[in-house]
Write a protein that binds this DNA or RNA. Structure first.
Lengths: 210, 210
DNA sequence: AATTGTGAACCTCTTCACAGCT
DNA sequence: AGCTGTGAAGAGGTTCACAATT
């Protein structure tokens, strides 16, 4: 009967909640009215207990005996994941990875909007990729503020990434997704998540020899 | 005094070992002869105990009182991570993310070689990106075998990724890095690692509202 | 009969702390 | 004196298993 819970929530729970949201969005399209934790587990390769535990960190959304109502679960998961509001996103670094982000339209729904890019290459500044304008990096602070950007995706070379973080933080950004393979420094109230793409590839050789 | 250990090794340990290798390669360039777990911890934002524990899964590489000899540590880490041999890599899907991989030369050292790509678009087949030839996807099986590819990076749309896995497995591939946001099926002796790029972005909104 | 919500058990990974080595 | 290697404790996350509910 609780609707919120003080217990510390594992980060892996948040990733899974996002998977659940994807799945129930599909179920909702298919007009499937309800789903049990066991069935949702089947579809996501997770255990029923894991799913119930994850959801219960945030409340009691299910009905004993009949599972979870799909439209309500969509709503609850959107609420939990902060997907009821709109969020503007900018990519810093319009190189190959930054461009890949701009060309990928998969997240230009569900209230996420990639609307600006930055680069220091004069040949790129002023151009558009997938209709997203590339601004001069020297304009980063005013443009981030003007366009009300909430999230920065950093795809610049490692040696420039800390400087970008500093500028973004100065512009009031609270959330950064970093692809440079370096440990970045930011104030405690700024969330920095790191994705190490070449690291992901590099560790595969371990599994090949073991 | 042990040189190997039966205990189960956390996957996070493997990722960290890769970070240690990067770091000691830099130290080696700088001709720094030895490093303590505390100093390496400083450089990687990890605790000294964590580093000793990680290394000790694989042996006793340090010297009591003086730390770890850098050149020996480079050698040991390369050995552990399977980086003493050469490995050929192919990218399947020469879209924006696949192209980003091809253009990124950061891992074309340390014995990893991205040497082939595949796509089903006639306009791309026969072209080269960063000198890497793009083959017709229908030729995937013979080309993977001919070129002795060990690792496949899958960057095709979600709906095609399982078919690609099946082809790769049929060609004898044992190691796959998958970027499609779907749960893939493969035999137990095939390692599939998943990276969910849009998921990484999507969960950020959670942290923004909490 | 079906399925949730959850305390407790379990398992995994990290940190502590120190004996022992150089 | 400095630092590793590691048993033991601690923290964190997952699974079990079942009472409670519809």
């Amino acid at each position: 009967m609780n609707t919120a819970n003080k217990k510390r929530i594992p980060e892996s729970t948040i990733s899974r909640l996002n998977l659940y949201l994807r799945e129930v969005l599909i179920l909702n399209e298919l007009k499937i009215p309800r789903i049990s934790s066991a069935d949702l587990g089947e579809r996501t390769n997770l255990s029923d207990a894991q799913i119930r535990r994850d959801l219960n960190y945030f409340g009691s959304f299910g009905k004993t005996g009949s599972g979870y109502a799909v439209p309500e679960l969509v709503k609850s998961l959107r609420k939990i994941l902060g997907r009821e509001e709109f969020w503007n996103i900018a990519v810093v670094g319009a190189g190959s990875l930054g461009s890949a982000f701009m060309k990928y339209s998969g997240f230009n729904k569900e209230n996420l909007h990639l609307i600006a890019a930055f680069d220091n290459d004069p040949a790129k500044v002023g151009q558009k990729i997938n209709n997203i304008p590339i601004h001069d990096i020297v304009q980063i602070r005013p443009v981030l503020q003007e366009k009300k950007i909430a999230i920065c995706v950093i795809t610049v070379p490692a040696q420039n990434s800390q400087a970008v973080v500093d500028e973004a933080v100065a512009a009031g950004i609270k959330c950064i997704l970093n692809f440079a393979p370096v440990a970045l420094t930011a104030p405690d109230d700024v969330i920095v998540r790191n994705v190490d793409l070449s690291g992901e590839l590099e560790i595969l050789t371990y599994f090949l020899v073991h």
